[in-house]
Design a protein around this nucleic acid. Structure first.
Lengths: 206, 206, 206, 206
DNA sequence: ATGTAACCGAGACGGTACGTCGTGTCTTCAT
DNA sequence: ATGAAGACACGACGTACCGTCTCGGTTACAT
């Protein structure tokens, strides 16, 4: 369950009593429960998590080295299912699907008011942020850039543009709304509107 | 120095020794120093700030009700000077100036590695976030929307677009780079490239 | 209140809030209470003492470096008043007075069932034992040896005997009863009987 | 002969693997080793004993109910062989032999610095102390009192003395030196000197 | 000049949480 | 059944901060 890679340990025969999966679940779900109940992040101590889950502190420290590592796992457990099969019919459709999945994440977060805090918290601990970045953010970014490359080859996207920058341009508005502007709403057709607006350009047609 | 309102206290005759401004500066600058030295945010306690500034804890609590309020003031002290006179020659030029000021902020933050953390931290405390949002973010947003409205009247911007959404589209890519993707760099012509790309649209010219 | 010497600190102006004597008493008496209530020594944790005395743990650690140092002070606080003016009328009378004070200690200990445990505990920590030895045991021993020396000069004690050994002989039986044989009782005339028996010798008169 | 019961175990067919005596020895000797190496008693945990002996904790708990029971066994294993045939030639000689065995114990203890601690520790756990008292101390005490009774019948000891008290008087000085005054030495002729001094009395012969 | 009231540094105070360790019990695989 | 290993709930360890409080001492105004 460690969030950092896994790669099938090199054999290591089981010695002693194995760790209980039930306990593992109890900890993750107990933490989730606290978050959902609106307990401020600063008041969620390892001690309290242990009490909530009916578990000894050592049992938590045996699995995670601290609060931050634990939160990363909680966050990943709660993340909506990762990317999906892209339709592949056109660059436009693919981009809309990608943006739509971002919107779903924003909605899920909002509804429970949970992940915002955890996300913010992670940014202040570089190691954890790096782990989260590598395992969650980067893969999506790569998917986006790939779609854009194919678009350039198809002639759907201007060939002279820097795909990295274009990716920021596409993803930016949705992130701003979902992460930085929690007061804004995320209407159903938002992904489509953003993509079409960007494709057409802001300048009047003629 | 309270960040919430100010409006010149109604009268209150000064009795007893007045608060030392030197002490006030020492606290703010001491905190700044810790941030600049790369001390992780979580390790910056009121106790440590007091030690660093050579000041009693009570002296800090006399001015701020807690760590969060203090950080807001530190952040505001360190912010680059707020917006500027817009050229007004065209919507394009105005947008570039606004984006460029955002870029400057990103650079300043990066160079000292300070504000990232503080920004992230603030997000987990709703009251503080609201204060920061109202005093720093909202004014800039309003300026941006105003520029876009003028653009629609001038015929520089398609009249059928939602200016709020367009503002997110313009500001989004810069924020993504400055706040969420600290690993990306912010080249000098970035503001210009973003605006021109957006105006022209992503689709090939013909 | 440190048990190790005192010698009037060289001046040291008081800085910060002074330590509360009331708190000091609360801790010592709280510990005493636990001992009197028959709580096994092993179950008396610093944590529990703090709870009993209504005090923070740090407040205890500020005064004593650990459980052992604290117990020494508790023990010394509870000790019956140290020796007394010796009558000086004869070696026999002086020895009886010294032994009687030992008997009193044994009785006090027994009645509350306190000090036995603490005494035993101290033996397993050499530093503490040394401190207790120097401040409590040694002075009494010196007083005894002094009395015996005067006895040799007066002709009340055989001049060929080693006063150190004689002291052990006199003090021994009382200690055995008071410390090692808690089941034995300590009748009122015990000191007198021991001294007279020793002076006369065990052999039948003739 | 009787078909009912027997002295030895009442039949109980051995099922499963029998307990290893080697393991039993490893535990006792491992504990002894720790004591000999001067590890403070408070730092000798069951956990550490198990590590030292290369044994699982459960294996220890299967044999002893806790640290105290284990220590009693360690102590008894290490005790010099219990009393001996008394010469019986005279009360004086018998007393000297008894005292000498006490002195040997004191020397053994001292040389390894072991039993002091264990002895002290036992005093704080009444159940264990009772066990030790009954199995080690009481038999010796009874032997001593018996010798004194014979002495009274022989006319070697004044008939008007309380033999219990006399026993304390004889045993006291040696115990004081061996148990309470570890800094004192125990010269070879100590037993003889004590007995002769007591028999003759402290008063000058004149 | 002298109150007097708020300031200041220092540090004690009752708490809570930290991360580690030892307790005695349990569960697993292997002998 | 025994044995080594180690997970488990529990609770104490000694330290660090929290936010409040009490000290001795210092300004700076109002008398």
């Amino acid at each position: 369950m460690s969030f950092v890679g896994s790669g099938t340990a090199p054999d290591q025969p089981v010695r002693g009593r194995p760790r209980s999966e039930a306990v593992e679940r109890a900890i993750l779900e107990g933490t989730m429960k606290l978050l959902e109940d609106g307990v401020p992040l600063a008041e969620i101590s390892i001690e309290r998590i242990a009490r909530t889950a009916g578990v000894g502190k050592a049992t938590i420290y045996r699995r995670w080295s601290g609060k931050e590592e634990l939160f990363v796992d909680v966050l990943r457990t709660a993340e909506p299912q990762d990317p999906e099969q892209l339709p592949g019919t056109s660059m436009r459709d693919d981009l809309i699907v990608l943006l739509e999945s971002l919107r779903q994440r924003g909605l899920a977060n909002r509804s429970s008011a949970i992940l915002h805090n955890v996300h913010a918290q992670m940014k202040s601990s570089p190691k954890i942020w790096a782990a989260y970045h590598n395992s969650v953010i980067l893969p999506r970014r790569r998917a986006g850039v790939e779609v854009l490359r194919r678009g350039q080859q198809n002639g759907e996207l201007r060939a002279d543009l820097d795909v990295e920058l274009v990716n920021d341009i596409i993803v930016g508005p949705m992130l701003v709304r979902a992460v930085l502007r929690p007061e804004a709403d995320l209407p159903e057709d938002l992904a489509e509107r953003i993509v079409d607006t960007l494709l057409a350009g802001l300048r009047p047609v003629n």
